[in-house]
């Protein structure tokens, strides 16, 4: 058997998720922190739904998946030059959602 790659950016396999789940990581945020899932270039655009399905199946329903991982700006990788001209203290207020 070869690998089933769930997260292509960080090479996280389905087996990695199974082991993490068995080790007690039973929500997405915890799975993410343990395996590195969703922490790469795409920030989960290509793996969050797959990982959610994995959790839904093991936990017995979509309602049990609960929250996605914490979402933070930026949505897309963006050159720092786009923000370098925003003077410090002048940036938009960071408020906890």
């Amino acid at each position: 058997m070869g690998k089933v790659i769930v997260c292509r950016c960080e090479d996280v396999t389905l087996e990695d998720l199974r082991q993490a789940f068995a080790a007690g990581h039973r929500d997405l945020e915890s799975l993410k922190r343990f395996t590195g899932l969703s922490t790469g270039f795409c920030q989960g655009k290509c793996c969050a739904a797959h990982a959610g399905r994995f959790l839904a199946e093991l936990r017995g329903g979509d309602d049990m998946v609960c929250d996605p991982t914490r979402t933070r700006p930026l949505l897309h990788p963006t050159p720092a030059a786009c923000f370098a001209a925003i003077a410090s203290g002048e940036a938009p207020d960071q408020e906890d959602a």
Binding site: A48, G52, D62, C66, T71, R72, L75, A97
Partner: peptide, 25 residues
């Protein structure tokens, strides 16, 4: 395969997000 909804900007704004196996968050 079902595409995954782009929920992130709504999540930035504190909007409620849920999970549906048919598509994703």
């Amino acid at each position: 395969y079902p595409p995954a909804p782009a929920y992130e900007l709504a999540h930035h704004a504190g909007c409620r997000v849920d999970f549906d196996s048919a598509c994703g968050f």
